[in-house]
Each structure stands twice: as C-alpha cells, then as structure tokens.
Design a protein around this nucleic acid. Structure first.
Lengths: 212, 212, 212, 212
DNA sequence: GATGAATGAGTCTTCATTCAT
DNA sequence: GATGAATGAAGACTCATTCAT
C-alpha cells in the first residue's frame, strides 16, 4: 500500500511497452506476450497491473492522445509570432516517418473507436482540441496582421488538422509518395493560400523544446 | 482464366460477404465464420475457394480499392464541366456516413499494410491514381478557364485527396464533429481558394449513375 | 472419423465421458482435458458440442438425475408386492460401492447447487420425486395389508429417502464403517419398524431389469 | 508445542477465516485471496503460516470436525434425562439453515475425502464418534426406563446419525422441501418408533450452553 | 513478522484449417 | 462441388506460490 510510487511507475512502464508493441502490431493483433516482452516482465505481471488487455489498451490510447496533444501544444505555446506557431504546429502534427510510434498508435486505434465509446470519445476530443489550437493561432495571426483569413478560422483550422491527419495516415501506412517533408510542404501550401501569408514556409527556424 | 463461371461467381460472392464482414469487424478481428455467415455458406466452403483467410483478405482489399477508384472515376468521366467533375469527385471521395462499407474497409486495412507489401502497394497505388484524377480534372478546369491554380496542379490534387482521406477517417471513426456534409463543404472551401473558382459549391447538380 | 450418427449421439458420448470424469474428480476439479481424454476426442471437440464447461456440467447433472430416478422407478414398477417394491427400491437407492459412478456424481454436485439455480432445481426435484415414489409404494402396501404405517406415509418416505442419501454419502465418501450391505440392512430395519412389516429383509428376491 | 502464542493465534485466525471462505465457495473453489481477505491479512501471509493451501484446508477440516463433535457432545453432557439428551443431540446435529457454516463445510469436503486419506479418516472418525454418542445415550435411556429399543442400539444410532446427515445435506444444498424444523420433526419421528418413547418431541426445553 | 510485487504453470476458450463424406 | 465435424495450436486469464523488503 505504501508503495504507490512503484505501482504508478510500473503501470507507466507497461503502458510505454504497450505503446511500442501496439505501434508495431496494431491494437487488434498485439498480444499480451508482446507487451510483456517489450516491458521485460512476465506475462502474468501484465495482468497484475491491468485487469485485462482491453483495459490496458484503453490506457495506452488515452495516454497517447494526451501525449500527442501536449507535444503539439508545447510546440506552439513557446512562440510569439503566429507564423512560427503555425509552422511549428504543423511540423509537430505530422509523423516524423513511417515508424513514428505515437502517430502509428493514433491511427491504428481508429477501428477500435467504432465499437468502443471510450476510444471514440478520446478520438473526437483530440480532433476538437487540435482544431481549437489552430483556430486560436489563426486569430492571433490575424491580430498580428500576418494573416488574412479567406474562410472562417474554424474552417481553416479543421482543414489544417485534417490535412495533417490525412498525410499522417499515408506516411504511417508507408505510402512512399508522401514523405514527411512533402507533407509539410503541402500543408503549408494550403496554409499560405488560406491565410494569404507567403511567409509560411518549412524553413522557419525550429525551436526545439520551447519550454526549456 | 480457365476458371469456370461458377468458380468465379462464388469467389465474388465470398469477397462481397467478406467486404461486409470486414467493414464491421475490421480485418484483424473478422472471423472466417463471420464471412461464411454473411455469404450464407458453410465455413469449410471459404477454404474451398481461398487457401486461407489472408489470401481472401488480400482479394477483398484489392477488390475494394478497385471498386472505390472505379466509382470515383465514373463520377467524373460522365461530366464535361470541370467544376461539375470536381464537385462530383469530392462527393464520391467522402464516405456517405459512419457505416459506409467501402470507406470503412479502406481505412481499417491501414495496419495490415504495414506488414504486407501487397496491401501497401494497393494502398499507395490508390492514392497516386486519385491524385492523377484530380490533377487531370484541374488542368481541364484551367483549360476551360474556370480555374486559376494557385499552386501546381499535383499539389492541389494531393491536398484534395488527403483532405478527403482525413475527413473520411473521421467520419468512419464516428467523429460527430465531422458530418459528411460539413466535410464536403470544407473540402470545397479549400478547392475554391486553390482554384480561385467560387462556383465550387455542394449544390452543383448531382448526376446519378453518369454511365447509364 | 466414423461420423457418429448425429449431433445427439456425440453429445451423449461426451456427457457419458464427463459423467465418468466428474465422478472421479468432482465437478469443481474436473478439467476439460479429463473429459476429452475420457471420450477419446481432442480438447477442442468438447467445445464444439458445448459452449463451455459449465453448460456441459449442467447437462451431466440433469442426465444423472434422470438416469438415477429412472433406474429406481424401473426397479419398482415391475413388481406387484409392495414389500418387493420397497426392498428393490431401497437397494437401487443405495450406491453399489464407493465407486458407484452415478451416486458419486449426484453427491459431489451438491456444492454447485448452492450457486446455481438450475442445479438446485434438479436436486430438489429428485428428492421430491423419490419421496413420491416411496409414498405411493407405502400406500400400496397398506392397501395390500402388508404395512401398518406408524407415521404419515410422506414422513416415512422422506425418512427412507434421507436414510439412503445419508448412507449413500458415507459409502461414496469411502466411510468403511458403512458398507452397502449394512446400509441396506439398516434402512430396512427402519422400514420394518415404520411399517410394522417384518418381511422387509434384504433377501427378498432381486428382480433384475424388470422391464426386460 | 514450542510455537509462540502469536503463531498459534494467527493460525487459528486464518483457520477461522478459511472456514468461512470454504463454507461459501467450497474447498475446491476457495482461493487463497478469499481466505486472506476474510482474515484481513495480505495474501502472502497465508503462506507464512501454512506451507500451502492444501495444508490449510486439512487443518480447516480437522478443526471443523472437532468443533462439530464438541458442540454436539456439549449439548448432551450437560443433561441428565436421556430424552433431553436425544432431542438436544438431534437438534445440534442438524444445520440451523442453508447458511450453517460448519455444516456446509463438512458436506462440501466430501469429494476431497476421496483422494485424501487424511480427510477420509476425519470423516469416518466423525461418523463413528457420533454413533458412539447416540449409542451411549440410547443405553442410558434404556437404563432410565424411558426407551425400549426395537433394534440394537448401534443400529438405531447409525440411523439417527445418518438421518441427520441426509437431512443436513438437503438443508445445506438449499432444498426447500426440507426445513430444519421439519427435519428435526422427522428425525424425532424415527426416534420415537425406534425407542418406543412418545416423549421425544421438538418442544423439549432447550438448554442453552449447558456448560456455563 | 508481514507484505505484496512478481511470477509462470495450468486451464479454458477461440478459431483457422483440414478432411472424410 | 460443398459441407461441417473435428482438430490443435494459440492466446487470454487465474491464481498458488515465492521472495526481497
């Protein structure tokens, strides 16, 4: 009882292992053994911390959604100029490659959301929050006189998020016609025409870990 | 080639049944029994026509990709005006709802493509072909003096396809923030700014079964 | 495999195998493997005919109750003289020994009846039916002027059934102080004093399979 | 012998907890966790005091047998009149209801006795001792000129014990046709005819805790 | 003395696949 | 051509038991 530290740490460790395993096999094919192996523990131990595989998977997805959104928020909040924000946000919203763990996870969980209200809620919530971030950022850009929005901010925001999702799906699926670089370039191409701002280019300085 | 008619018909029947079953359970969770039931045949019969489940699933995916692309091509080829083509194409590219069989199928197969080169090839091929269709259509619109392209045609085409894919994913996943109508509206919003053509609205007359 | 006539025959075969296995290990400890082995089939086959072990066990118990009651009824119905009836009935109601399959089964299922309404119903039903058989038989004896009942027929009947159950329990449990012969002798001792009929002795001629 | 007080007390506490848990789940289904929970200790602690579950269960059974026999002996030894003794003894020999902890325990252990010589020995020993008690009591009654035995004392004693066992089994199994009151009445009905003593009725004054 | 984290053997259950008919 | 009975490998889950604190 007096060992909540370990309990929590262990669970986190297992969730991390499961994240990796799911990103490889997909949630529908991942086995308890995969997760146990990835975590370096016995199979029974997985059940010591999680009632069953479904419960663990739920935690994994919840954790992944939070992680993804937090990363993206971090990328934006440290910057002042809306143009920097937008470029950083778009960069962070795209998978780094076909092996991007978090991205794979997020996309592969889609089918599960169909049957499972909890997954569905997280999934929709992520979309809505991302749209909110982009909307805010677009309005900041307008206030800074960098952007002139051709459509309502939320519409542009929805399109930006969705472009990222679409390209992300292709990247993660291994579509070789869509590289992360080209995807970013195309997303920013849309952003330029939607904001009338020609400065939205991939070569905007990247600000690593803006919080630090 | 030398396969008797019945053989071919039976296989098609099973593929259709499998398409339905997969659209419900996903490729990783669908059972042979689901497919046999949907087809109204005995379980053993599935293996009479397909070596194993994986082979059947491969056929299902291939068939689905072709089906999807053909539908979309049909929607375009019967029309003359590039604006009609684009609106029809976009409409056809979006799922009709969360229960759109073909769309569900296409998205749920994502994780499989990771491990399986055949799936991956079909998946990428579909993307490329769709981009080609949109590219052609955009150039036609330019020739017809309806469109003034803000970016290279292939870039706009890639964005249009990807927007559809992204919104399609959300629709099929049950995201209630994204209805098919709103998705179409947003895709066309992008199309308008990318083509400079204000006529690209959802109320363009739908031409049912243009081949007929 | 020589296709056993039908679904029903296979199920019966499995129930018989399960009956044997349960009589050895008890319902709480019997394993699917025990049953499959006893039936000479693969483990999976058990689940082909029964959804799960509990369902099979339920069938086993139901079958055992019917079997036991039918045996006993057969022992009685073929005879005219109530004294013969009673002695035959008592003999049939006692286990033949510690290894009496049916008897072991019936007693070992007791604990399950506690949690399971279906078991409980069968269990109580068996008691009631046995009491009814003895009651009828006692009244016949009265009509034949062989018996003079010291107590109401149903009370004597309940005591007879319960004596059998009690001795049966001891026999089956391996209590060496209670042999089947001594048990019969004691039950009949009670019967004699309750009916005032000195003719109720174990040496009454046994009539094997009266139906034949 | 050299065991410290705490050690002994802890073991007794665990046996009591196990007694309760077994009376609920049965010896074949009870889990170490059930026992630990009932005792309010950690799971590991069970094995600190008992090598394994089987050993604990053996102790539980042994303890239960002693407890049961002691209770019954207590009910008898405090009384002078054999008629009181017999009625008190019968009352104590029947479960108080379907939830009688000790009784459930004793009956549920049956199947275990089959495989386990220790259980079997305790089980048979209990029977023999009960018969001895009843035998003695019947002879006292004879000496007091209350009883005139129709059969040898040990035979009547065996029948009395067995009637109790049989009715006890039904009560504990939840047979609604057999209430504790009716069971007592029926047992005493037999006792009356076997002893020729009409005074053996359930309304004999109960003497609570005769030792006090 | 006690604990509870961790284990892994033991089981049930599912289900793709085979094959006799 | 088709079936469905039968199989057995695979995998989730349970839980007694061990052992470092």
């Amino acid at each position: 009882m007096a060992r909540p530290r370990n309990q929590t740490a262990r669970r986190a460790q297992l969730i991390a292992a499961a994240r990796q395993a799911v990103s490889v096999h997909g949630p529908a094919r991942v086995r308890v053994a995969d997760i146990a192996d990835a975590a370096g523990v016995a199979r029974g131990s997985v059940h010591y911390y999680f009632r069953d595989l479904d419960q663990l998977l739920e935690q994994v997805y919840k954790d992944a959604v939070d992680r993804f959104f937090t990363q993206r928020l971090d990328a934006v909040t440290g910057l002042r100029d809306a143009r920097d924000k937008l470029v950083a946000c778009a960069r962070r919203g795209l998978p780094t490659g076909a092996d991007d763990e978090l991205a794979r996870l997020l996309y592969w969980f889609g089918p599960e959301a169909t049957d499972n209200a909890v997954f569905a809620a997280h999934c929709q919530g992520l979309f809505d929050r991302q749209v909110a971030v982009y909307s805010g950022l677009l309005e900041v850009g307008e206030a800074q006189d960098h952007f002139v929005l051709a459509e309502p901010a939320v519409d542009i925001a929805a399109n930006l998020v969705t472009l990222e999702d679409g390209y992300g799906l292709h990247i993660v699926t291994g579509n070789r016609s869509v590289t992360p670089e080209r995807a970013l370039s195309l997303v920013l191409g849309y952003a330029r025409s939607a904001t009338g701002c020609a400065d939205l280019t991939p070569d905007r300085p990247v600000q690593e870990s803006p919080r630090a």
